[in-house]
């Protein structure tokens, strides 16, 4: 495994640990305010400094990883559960079913991702759950498209014909025979989509459509830091650099997975 990939896996491992065990780690309370200690630069006892209300930035980054990861993975889960069956049905049946389903996917894809998510949050209201759903709606058509394409390529292969000849029902063929064979491609796309979803989630909270500003979500932290950036740059640098490193890690790891798992990696990129 090349070094960048190892580093990326390390970053993702730390992220996962922070997200799952954050509250158990020896960090301060990310919600505790201390106005008299506001806007401290990095150094002991606040290793990454404090924000405008004197909250510990390290603690907010660590606990915030939970929200970022939740939005990223949750959105991809929404995309997988909704998009994959949709795409597989379209690819498997072909004909007018395919034409109809593909149009629906195209319509979803036609919206710029952020606009679509903004519209959904405007309808459903703020909150981490709604935000996740909104971002998920954006990953859905991407995954549906991949599932459809892969299913289309497999549906006339011999093993599918064999299954059909043995009397398998369509859903059995889809679930038992086709899904395992397109799984690799889906994992690759899903891992890359997770990175995009984390970023879009942060963008939306940056725009202020996420949840309460007390929640230490990275995008919301970036937004809250804006007025202070000329005099206290650490406020904006800490979440921005964190987000950047995590994005890099997801992308490097995703690329590596594609090289290993995706049979079409050499031709399509």
């Amino acid at each position: 495994m090349p070094l960048p990939v190892r580093l990326s896996c390390g970053v993702l491992g730390v992220l996962a640990l922070a997200a799952v065990f954050g509250p158990l780690l020896p960090v301060r309370n990310p919600y505790a305010q201390d106005l008299m200690a506001a806007l401290r630069p990095p150094g002991a006892p606040h290793w990454l400094g404090t924000d405008q209300l004197g909250r510990d930035l390290l603690a907010r980054i660590v606990i915030g990883s939970r929200f970022s990861l939740l939005i990223g993975l949750g959105a991809v889960a929404v995309g997988l559960t909704g998009g994959v069956p949709f795409g597989m049905v379209a690819g498997f049946y072909g004909g007018w079913v395919d034409a109809l389903f593909t149009r629906v996917i195209d319509v979803l894809l036609a919206f710029p991702g952020i606009i679509l998510a903004l519209a959904v949050v405007a309808v459903t209201g703020p909150g981490i759950g709604n935000l996740t759903f909104a971002v998920g709606l954006r990953t859905l058509p991407v995954l549906a498209r991949v599932a459809r394409g892969q299913t289309l390529a497999l549906r006339n292969r011999e093993f599918v014909d064999a299954a059909r000849a043995l009397g398998c029902r369509p859903w059995e063929i889809l679930a038992r025979h086709i899904l395992p064979n397109i799984g690799g491609s889906l994992v690759v796309v899903a891992s890359l989509q997770t990175a995009t979803a984390v970023l879009i989630g942060a963008t939306l909270t940056f725009l202020g459509v996420g949840a309460s500003p007390e929640i230490p979500e990275w995008g919301a932290m970036l937004n809250a830091a804006r007025p202070y950036m000329l005099r206290y740059p650490h406020l904006i640098l800490v979440p921005a650099l964190t987000l950047m490193v995590v994005m890099m890690a997801f992308n490097v790891a995703g690329d590596y997975l594609r090289d290993r798992l995706d049979p079409y990696a050499s031709t399509a990129s």
């Binding site: 505790a32 305010q33 106005l35 405008q52 209300l53 500003p213 007390e214 809250a224």
Partner: peptide, 10 residues
Amino acid sequence: DAEVSQAVAG
């Protein structure tokens, strides 16, 4: 305003 509100909440 939002910062003051959070401080008041605290």
